[in-house]
Simulated scan of single mutants.
Amino acid sequence: MPQHASLSGRDIHKIVTLAHRCTQVDGIEPFNEQTMLALSRPPVPYRRHFIVPHGETIIGYAQIETVGEAASAELAVDPDHRRRGVGRALLREVLTSLEAEITKFKVWAHGDLPPAAALATSEGLERERVLFKLSRGMEGFEWPSAWPPGTPDDWPSGEGPALTLPEGVSLRAFEAGEDDEEWLRVNAAAFAEHPEQGRWTAVDLRERENEAWFDPEGLIVAEDADGMLGFHWTKVEDGVGEIYVLGVDPRAQSTGLGKTLTLAGLAHLAAHGVRQVDLYVDESNARAVQLYRSQGFELARSDVQWAKRTPWPSKS
């Protein structure tokens, strides 16, 4: 099956169509945001695209990225062409192409659907990482009775404890172009151990700033005299809000700033009419899971990352 360093506009359209068909049938997007954005990026040595053509359409697609001696992938098969060996052949083609280059392979299965789990286990992969999608409605949320000075007047208030900030710390909206470098510094520090988020570059940030959903007012920054301490980046699509990225600089860890930023971002969303909020968090991040659970978020679905190490035996 064809392997490409970059994709034509026509193939991108076909892959987007494939993704929409999978979403309609499965109720879950087959690819994450990073994979979709990378469809139109210029070729780089560490990224490859695999397509399974069928007449004028594409019925299977996989994208891989290598980092050092590890590779991560996402793949999907058109619902009308499943259970015919297409997914297995696509996965094996990806594995064969990588065997001489890497020592570890990882692939995401969004929604932890049984067919994906069956394929992964039959090909010798094991569950390694679980990403929770948590969700809650905004009705009944306990808002603070007062917000720190300088925060927007339209943020909701309630009967909860008044929210205060340490002396010298303030909240404000992100300024695109002015805050980019400092945001990247805090993001890298906050997610130093995270396999994807901690590797964001200026290009990754600019791509999000150029998205139709980007709202600088929804990216709330905490700072003191020494610079940025943390941020809560919210996102709204189709009326549903998301805690997109929430990060705290190590120098401000264990100060309660994470909870404050969480409330600030949720207040911004509520003030803009959002009635449902989603977020993604690693199952292994017990502190964050506990924080969100304490604020009424419940499990909506799980995404699973399957992995295997080389050498892997070829299969007939």
Rank of each mutant, 00 (worst) to 15 (best):
R287P: 05
D180I: 08
F105A: 14
A264T: 04
L205N: 03
V245K: 02
G198N: 12
G227N: 08
V52C: 09
T35K: 07
A120Y: 11
Q63V: 15
R21I: 04
A189Y: 08
A286L: 06
G85P: 09
V67Q: 13
S72D: 13
R251M: 02
L75D: 01
V236L: 03
R287E: 09
E178Y: 07
N210L: 09
A70F: 05
V94G: 01
L229Y: 04
A5S: 13
G137V: 01
I12V: 13
F214W: 09
S72M: 08
R199K: 12
E181V: 03
P216W: 05
S135W: 05
F132K: 06
E65R: 12
W306K: 00
D249R: 15
D238P: 02
V52F: 04
A5D: 15
Q197N: 07
D11V: 12
A146W: 09
A118N: 03
G124L: 06
E242D: 05
E211L: 09
D238F: 10
A225D: 10
Q197G: 04
R206W: 12
G111Y: 06
D154V: 10
D215Y: 03
E128K: 12
A252H: 04
V169S: 02
F132H: 15
D249T: 13
D80W: 06
L257Q: 03
S97Y: 05
A73F: 01
F231M: 15
I28C: 08
P166A: 04
G218S: 11
L171S: 13
D282M: 13
A173V: 04
S145G: 15
T310G: 06
P216G: 04
E175N: 05
P53D: 02
R206V: 14
E217Q: 15
H268E: 12
S254H: 14
I64Q: 07
Y244S: 00
G60N: 10
T35F: 07
R275E: 13
R84S: 00
A73V: 01
A162C: 11
E298Q: 08
K14E: 15
D179W: 03
W233T: 15
R287T: 08
A76N: 07
T234R: 12
L90M: 02
P166I: 14
E56Q: 15
S145H: 02
V86L: 05
L113W: 03
A70M: 09
Y244R: 09
L134Q: 10
A267I: 03
V16K: 10
D154H: 06
G230T: 08
W108T: 00
G60R: 00
M138N: 11
A76Q: 01
E196A: 05
L131C: 13
S6K: 09
P156A: 07
W147N: 10
V52P: 00
L261G: 06
D215E: 13
Q63C: 14
S8I: 14
S72V: 14
G68P: 08
P156I: 10
L98E: 03
D112K: 05
N210S: 14
V86S: 06
I59K: 00
R275Q: 08
